[in-house]
């Protein structure tokens, strides 16, 4: 039944767009997903990442652009003909069917013989470790177990591509970490290409081979997790990736570095964009540390203990607020000196 074979080399989004009336939810997005690759679509809510996923799934028609699976154009196909697997945010398990029936649904749609359905459902149950719950109804399962059923149901048909729409957002913090490891394990076991939508940077960083950052329906940056973590391409991406200190400043070129002013002190930084004149400096709190001879002086306003070290924020002499890290306890009212390594200060054009 499925028109698409399991073996493929790449899924290509060619300048796809989706508008709702005059609102551009997705604009000119291009991306190539390789076989077995794990891609995270990352962005704040309303950035178009779920729209993108629904367009790839076929649940939303495109307003422009094309989707190619190798040399076959698939964007006019109905979702039922694309053969992709999908894990929904609220799992969307069929409440009237047992776990076994839920997982076998796609195989029955493909009119597979009964013994093949039974065998493959058993394999999938074993993969997600739910053999003991095969005959329960979804309502009798915990959130994490429902999540596993949803994953098993999506992968049992051996789809070329699995789409996951914020699958962990309904779980509590502890279970979320557990299921993250579980998703990684299952992906490694079956190795099918996955597109994973999330607003949580930690999830994207820990799971993905490549991360696509979306904002206002446009791609802001594509790259491996390390690159996004250490070298965000734009100031807004940096802010989203946890660079809490976003300081307007003026940049002056000096060799490979630029000189910027943070909290009244002049520091060297790395120019991420050609920056001369008005600029933005971005520093993670963990890279702005308390050192006795640091150039920036701040008066601590609040600090909290985070297990290994302390995180705090203070006000510098020029009035700017800075978030920083400290190895020793600091108290509010105290005056401390901060320093940052030159390659951890990123400078963007304002």
């Amino acid at each position: 039944m499925t028109l698409i074979s399991h073996s493929f080399r790449s899924l290509r989004l060619d300048r796809i767009s989706r508008a709702f009336g005059t609102m551009r939810a997705l604009h000119d997005v291009s991306l190539t997903v390789g076989r077995g690759e794990f891609i995270a679509l990352l962005g704040p809510s309303g950035c178009g990442k779920s729209t993108a996923l629904n367009c790839i799934a076929g649940l939303l028609p495109l307003t422009a652009g094309a989707i190619w699976l190798d040399d076959k154009r698939i964007d006019a196909l109905d979702p039922e003909d694309r053969g992709f697997g999908m894990v929904f945010q609220n799992y969307a398990l069929f409440p009237h069917m047992s776990v076994r029936k839920n997982i076998g649904f796609g195989l029955v749609s493909q009119r597979r013989p009964r013994d093949e359905v039974a065998r493959r459902v058993d394999e999938a149950l074993a993969l997600v470790r739910l053999q003991d719950h095969a005959n329960k109804l979804p309502g009798q399962l915990s959130g994490g177990q429902q999540q596993r059923v949803a994953i098993a149901r999506a992968i049992v048909v051996e789809p070329p591509l699995v789409l996951m729409d914020e699958p962990l957002s309904n779980l509590d913090a502890k279970l979320r970490l557990e299921m993250r490891a579980e998703i990684r394990r299952i992906h490694q076991a079956i190795g099918c290409a996955t597109i994973y939508v999330t607003h949580d940077q930690d999830e994207a960083l820990s799971l993905a081979d490549r991360i696509v950052v979306l904002r206002d329906g446009e791609v802001r940056q594509v790259g491996p997790p390390e690159a996004l973590y250490a070298r965000p391409a734009h100031a807004d991406v940096a802010e989203f990736m946890g660079y809490r200190n976003i300081v307007p400043t003026t940049a002056t070129l000096s060799g490979d570095f630029v000189q910027v002013t943070i909290g009244g002190a002049t520091l060297p930084g790395i120019p991420m964009e050609p920056a001369q004149g008005p600029a933005i400096a971005a520093v993670r709190p963990e890279d702005l540390t308390v050192t006795p001879d640091g150039p920036i002086t701040v008066c601590v306003e609040a600090a909290e203990y985070r297990g290994r070290d302390f995180y705090g924020f203070g006000r510098a002499r020029d009035g700017s607020e800075l978030f920083f890290r400290s190895d020793r306890r600091v108290g509010s009212g105290e005056t401390v000196n901060l320093s940052a390594a030159a390659d951890r200060v990123l400078v963007y054009a304002a």
């Binding site: 039944m1 799934a57 109905d78 039922e80 992709f84 649904f105 749609s109 493909q110 048909v157």
Partner: peptide
């Protein structure tokens, strides 16, 4: 009836009648 259930059915290859 949650519309996501029907979408899930579509993603699993079930046509409108099914």
């Amino acid at each position: 009836i949650d519309p996501a259930l029907e979408q899930a059915g579509r993603m699993l290859g079930a046509r409108s009648r099914a």
